[in-house]
Design a protein around this nucleic acid. Structure first.
Lengths: 226, 226
DNA sequence: GTGGGATGTCACCGGCTTGTAACCTTGCTG
DNA sequence: CAGCAAGGTTACAAGCCGGTGACATCCCAC
């Protein structure tokens, strides 16, 4: 998954943005001032940089210019963040090589969408992984293989699919209806309680690893976040 | 998706407009006279209002003025619809706080575009946000997760929904009846005092963060503005 | 056809959630 | 300051929800 450097001097904004990007599955590196941003950009060589214009000392425009000057960081696309919606800023930012521009306040959703688009355009792959691993649980989709603590676990087709759907949306609660749609692939000819039964069988087979599967009462099931 | 209140006394016009908005993916609420418009605006708190100027009894300009006077509906952007293309009307409407002005006959396409633009400008993201954060309180809807000062708080399904409804209308007081409608999703087979009990449980679990939940005596509850 | 595994359904149970009522506290009004 | 109404608290019973075991059915391999 793509690595993104987020630069903002306000801790709250930094937290908000990086949380959302992480949720969307990106790897996030942060910096809260201009010189740190330059250092981390050279150190990590991220796939994309989110850069706040208003920074103490070295401001965002300056950082942008310096990043473009260094051949190591020059090709990295940059999205500028700013509170000012002024035309001057926009033009200036774009001239200095920012790929895109987002004015505060922005919706986290919108930001993630722009990031996604930009990365897609840049052809940085963001395909779904064909394997997951959490703690001592390994899931290999093409091999249809699941192991817990290196020991192989045999799952039926339905159990496997259920596990994958949950794992691929790690942290996000899936309602029974949702799971029926995605695992069984048609709408509710099936009793929602059937999901419970399959969860039970899945948990039974996973043994210790069933700790990764949460029940959220009144809502549905969830694969734990960490 | 954004909710839009459409007000027009001609059934044909009402139908035309709401059909097009629904096609564009918006949720539509309708009213065919001024007082109903006011009632529904307060009840549904839409993201935008399309208001015909020519209405029997209370006319559009009057409705506009009244909407602006009520703090609950004041911030909602309004687009005025009128047959008259006169400059006087335009000025009057804008003075009264209409955000935009469309003269009949208009193309449905144009109308939908204006709606889209206005919502975008207002940063009413076309979709509802899937997370909220205020101070040290974080709410993540897909994860069904609430944290206060980074510490996880376990809420029941009802408590969670109540919190989300309040958070999504930050600053606007919600009456007990309103909350019953939106959280419990059917009309008041339930005692309004039940809301109190759930607010208490919610506050208890939120601990310090309950300071974000105001009681407005004689009216209802509110998530604080800032 | 038979046997075994996979799958969907059901009934039951225990516990948590939830609605309600009764009582207490608070703050407004005169 | 007294009285009252609105909201906070407490307690509790009902019932909903999810876990579980049992079972019928289906499908496939043999």
């Amino acid at each position: 998954m793509a690595k993104i450097l987020v630069v903002d001097d306000e801790p709250d904004a930094l937290e908000l943005v990086s949380f959302n990007l992480k949720s969307a599955g990106y790897e996030v590196v942060t910096a809260d001032n201009g010189s740190e941003a330059l250092k981390k950009a050279r150190q990590h060589v991220p796939d994309l940089i989110l850069l706040d214009v208003m920074l103490p000392e070295v401001d965002g425009l300056e950082v942008c210019k310096l990043l473009r000057r260094d051949p190591a960081t020059a090709p990295i696309p940059i999205i500028m963040l700013t509170a000012k919606a002024g035309e001057i800023d926009r033009v200036l930012g774009l001239e200095l090589g920012a790929e895109d521009y987002v004015t505060k306040p922005f919706s986290p959703r919108e930001l993630v969408l722009r990031v996604k688009n930009l990365l897609k355009r840049r052809n940085v792959s963001e395909e779904k992984p064909d394997q997951y691993s959490v703690g001592d649980l390994f899931i290999d989709i093409p091999r249809h293989l699941v192991t817990v603590a290196r020991k192989r676990v045999d799952l039926t087709a339905t159990e496997f699919k259920l596990l994958i759907i949950l794992a691929s949306r790690r942290g996000r609660v899936q309602s029974r209806e949702q799971l029926l749609r995605d695992v069984w692939e048609y709408d509710s000819l099936i009793d929602t309680r059937t999901v419970d039964t399959h969860m039970r069988r899945l948990r039974e087979k996973l043994g210790d690893a069933c700790r990764y599967l949460d029940t959220v009462r009144g809502v549905g099931y969830r694969f734990v976040e960490n």
